[in-house]
């Protein structure tokens, strides 16, 4: 019996009571937090006149499936957009997580000359406003021949700075004792990285992967500027189809936006297991 359970057994009622109240409070807060999501969902079933009604109709008077039909079976190939988005997000995230974790380990645990200076340079690069990167990036991509290919979106995301920074910070919270004992046992950095840090940092890696996936998935501006051919379009570009000339088809757009959120939520639910499981199941806590 672990010590935690002991505490529970000592005064089960008190803790449960507290937990129950907190659950209610948090549920309520959570529901407030996702009001925009409800709006998105309910708007996707509305007729145009109903969208701007005030006070808001949270439940549409008639469930109009038209917008969802427009998304999936209309003249736009949302299945293609989806496939493209998945391709870009999966490759980009896998690459970023791996390369980022490696660099993070280097910065966190290997003392080499100029490490701090280099890291500050990294932080500096993270501060560059993305708006100024467009023109030079475009010139480079055009030169390298990857303009209007998915590589124009994938390559820059693989070399993540925020990921390096985040995972470095997380690695720093892993006690030195663990890697030191492995070091004494004769393990090299590569072994320590693969066999100890990667499993130990599962929560961080899963978290970063989820976030990076959502950033890649929602990357609108790069896709807009660097992709021209329709068969290469991604889901966020697909949302533009619902921007009419002088108005916005809010119902259609929100139907598409709902469809676009689902994969990330799915990834989150899958990835969450690793976030939580992480340390709890390993022996670190001992």
């Amino acid at each position: 019996m672990s010590s935690q359970e002991k505490i529970k057994n000592k005064s089960p009622k008190k803790i449960n009571y507290y937990k129950l109240i907190m659950t209610i409070v948090m549920t309520f807060t959570g529901l407030v937090m996702i009001i925009p999501f409800f709006w998105m969902l309910s708007t996707s079933f509305k007729s145009p006149a109903e969208i701007f009604e005030y006070p808001i109709q949270w439940i549409p008077s008639t469930f109009n499936l038209g917008p969802h039909e427009r998304v999936w079976f209309g003249e736009f190939s949302f299945f293609t957009y989806y496939w493209n988005s998945i391709k870009i997000a999966v490759i980009g995230t896998a690459g970023a997580t791996f390369i980022g974790a490696m660099a993070a380990y280097g910065f966190a645990r290997i003392p080499f000359k100029g490490r701090n200076g280099l890291f500050v340079l990294y932080l500096m690069m993270m501060m560059v406003p993305p708006q100024v990167l467009f023109v030079p990036k475009f010139i480079m991509f055009d030169f390298a021949g990857i303009y209007n290919t998915h590589w124009a979106l994938i390559l820059p995301t693989i070399f993540t700075i925020i990921g390096v920074f985040y995972m470095r910070q997380f690695f720093l919270t892993i006690p030195h004792a663990i890697s030191e004992s492995a070091f004494i046992d004769g393990a090299g950095h590569f072994r320590i990285f693969f066999q100890i840090f990667l499993p130990l940092a599962k929560p961080a890696i899963a978290t970063f992967a989820i976030l990076d996936f959502s950033w890649n998935w929602n990357n609108y501006e790069d896709a807009l500027v660097f992709l021209i051919s329709e068969h290469l379009f991604t889901v966020p570009l697909g949302l533009d189809n619902f921007v009419m000339e002088f108005s916005v088809d809010y119902a259609g757009m929100m139907a598409a936006a709902t469809a676009s959120v689902l994969p990330i939520v799915l990834i989150f639910i899958i990835g969450q297991r690793y976030i939580i499981e992480g340390v709890a199941s390993s022996a670190v806590k001992g």
Binding site: Q195, S282, V284
Partner: peptide, 15 residues
């Protein structure tokens, strides 16, 4: 003795 090996084992699987 016990814990570290446990990690390694898990690590192997992970590897």
């Amino acid at each position: 003795s016990g814990g570290y090996r446990k990690i390694t084992k898990k690590g192997d699987v992970h590897m």
